[in-house]
Write a protein that binds this DNA or RNA. Structure first.
Lengths: 150, 150
DNA sequence: GTCAGTGCAAACCCTTTGCAGAAAG
DNA sequence: CTTTCTGCAAAGGGTTTGCACTGAC
């Protein structure tokens, strides 16, 4: 299990795997960072900083809050994880960096992946002068049927 | 200038216009709310709560911070404006409720409208059971050329 | 007169920061 | 040994809340 230098997911959870992943992204694999990476990459999911903190320290105190934020910010900057900004109250971190989109259930706050291949954008408008596209995020906001909305 | 009961923008800024708009959305048009609505609907734009506060109180103190937040939340809940959650630090309020999308310049934080017609989604995946779509947000993240990124 | 709306300030909560101690190479 | 990382606690900043006052009808 290896060769996932830039794209993620195939089941990255062994310690050596996340260490390889971090090294390939230019991140020094310290003990705390490995713990955090293992929690994130255990499976495709969307975790807030608070949730990562709880996961990592489930059994015993391993990582402090400051380190959680520092590390998640570092992972995002280095492209190891993706920041999902959908909930005004907190940022979610997504270990799946392969292009994909999201369903967002506004009732429950639940976030689900949508494979990029099933949301083809047929036309993209010209970009403002002097800029280059960095990525496209598509969020389909959904609601439970018969929701007490409006 | 009238007949904009549910969709916005054609140049809504006269006091009577915003009052009609609010009434048609079931919002009692108080003095402060009218001031806030006039600031928002003066033109298509994306304003944070802080910016609305500054705009409304530019000449003299008219509205308090609490009322800004209460009113913007009310407007969003009633569908008068749209909340744009792109910047983890703050929410933007968009007076244009007609379907449309956004360019987001990650360098400058600038937000620009994209007409919905120029971003056709060719296929939308099936929704999770028991849910209905409420809307689709497309955000094209852009960056200045030769940006010192990564 | 009654109910809804507003203002002020304090509370909240997620996130960031400063700095001393610990770990990586 | 030097540099980078971590932890603690305190600060920061946008947003929310509690409660008394004011305004809408």
């Amino acid at each position: 299990m290896s060769d996932m230098s830039t794209q993620t997911f195939a089941g990255v959870s062994a310690k050596s795997d996340v260490i390889d992943l971090m090294r390939s992204h230019g991140i020094t694999p310290t003990q705390q960072r490995v713990e955090i990476a293992q929690a994130l990459f255990a499976r495709p999911q969307h975790l807030s900083a608070e949730q990562v903190l709880a996961l990592v320290n489930r059994e015993r105190h391993v990582v402090s809050k400051a380190t959680i934020y520092n590390t998640l910010g570092l992972f995002a900057a280095k492209g190891l994880v993706r920041e999902i900004i959908i909930d005004p109250a907190k940022v979610f971190y997504d270990p799946t960096t392969r292009p994909h989109h999201h369903f967002y259930n506004v009732d429950s706050g639940e976030l689900m992946d949508i494979d990029a291949s099933s949301v083809a954008l047929s036309s993209v408008p010209e970009l403002p002068a002097g800029t280059v596209a960095e990525g496209v995020d598509v969020v389909i906001r959904i609601r439970n049927c018969r929701s007490p909305a409006e």
